[in-house]
């Protein structure tokens, strides 16, 4: 059995704002195994990126982790000191940010920015070694060596994104988080980048956390997945199992709102209403106000949010499982 590389247990995080606490991440629990790719899907503002930032302990200053633990290779990250965290970041866990366009410092050359990361974690490398390393990474993602001496504005969006991937790989991390890496790209480039990520992951045996709002991309990219809604995981399990047998009402609707290429033609369903405000938290099932057929128990909010295992490794929120 492969070992668990990342264990997130009962993670709770909220943002302190003037209007009250925004409960962005509620009781999130998941595990990523070595070499596995794990998908996190949900609509905008459901807390996917908040989860991603807490994984590197990069949450903003008003974000408070009230409880829970994040274990990376048996190392507890929550509450770790800044100087220890700096050693873990990029070396063990790296991230491809949402919107690679702005992830490069505009006044520093691409090569120098990658070199900077390597230098931080391998201070004894010579310049030549680092250059070789970057050139090797560039080869993997399909970039020319000359890109090293370019400034970010001289590159196209796709090239920037490829370079970002090579940046994320520069210190041989155990796990890479891809936070909507294709959002700002057009469809053709999106496909290329996705293939690139897949290829790299296979090649290097990386663990990958893929965060997206696009359930189709998740289906293509991941082995296991979790569906997030309003800061909580409502369903998780093997990707294949979730797609063939979605149990939570939200997952079902999400799948129905995506066109299928092979299946019969049917009208896509749109989800009515808006995601709930997370200020000061929610009681009971968070999805019940938008649920197409909620039971009385759902409406009253008497059932707490709790995942129960319905098949092997396939978990869903008890509320929806109970209503059918």
């Amino acid at each position: 059995m492969t070992k668990d590389i990342l264990v997130v247990d009962n993670l709770n995080m909220h943002y302190e704002t003037l209007e009250g606490n925004v409960m962005a991440v509620n009781n999130v629990t998941f595990t990523v195994k070595e070499g596995e790719s794990f998908g996190l899907v949900g609509e905008s503002g459901c807390g996917k990126s908040s989860v991603a930032s807490t994984l590197l302990q990069l949450q903003s200053e008003n974000a408070i982790i009230s409880s829970g633990s994040i274990k990376l290779d048996n190392q507890e990250l929550v509450g770790m000191s800044e100087s220890d965290l700096r050693k873990v970041r990029w070396n063990d866990i790296s991230i491809v940010f949402q919107g690679a366009m702005n992830a490069w410092n505009p006044v520093i050359k691409i090569g120098e920015q990658i070199r900077e990361a390597i230098r931080e974690h391998h201070p004894n490398n010579t310049k030549k070694e680092n250059t070789e390393k970057i050139s090797e990474l560039f080869k993997i993602v399909g970039l020319d060596d000359s890109i090293m001496d370019r400034y970010p504005h001289e590159l196209s969006g796709g090239m920037k994104q490829r370079a970002i991937i090579s940046l994320a790989l520069s210190c041989d991390p155990k796990i890479v988080i891809a936070d909507e890496p294709t959002t700002a790209l057009d469809v053709v480039i999106q496909d290329q980048i996705l293939n690139e990520i897949k290829k790299v992951q296979k090649l290097l045996g990386l663990s990958l956390i893929y965060i997206s709002h696009d359930i189709a991309v998740i289906a293509e990219m991941t082995d296991n997945m979790a569906v997030m809604y309003a800061g909580s995981i409502v369903e998780k399990g093997p990707t294949a199992s979730i797609f063939s047998n979605p149990r939570h009402a939200y997952t079902k609707l999400l799948l129905e709102s995506t066109p299928s290429v092979v299946g019969e033609k049917k009208k896509l369903r749109a989800l009515d209403g808006e995601p709930p405000s997370l200020i000061n938290g929610l009681k009971g099932c968070s999805f019940s106000p938008r649920c197409p057929d909620p039971t009385d128990a759902c409406k009253k909010g008497s059932l707490e949010m709790k995942l129960i295992e319905i098949e092997s490794a396939h978990w869903a929120d008890q509320c929806c499982v109970n209503c059918g």
């Binding site: 965290l85 700096r86 050693k87 970041r89 990029w90 070396n91 410092n105 931080e120």
Partner: peptide
């Protein structure tokens, strides 16, 4: 943020 994530 990228720079922070890089551990600099």
């Amino acid at each position: 943020l990228t720079a922070r994530a890089k551990g600099i």
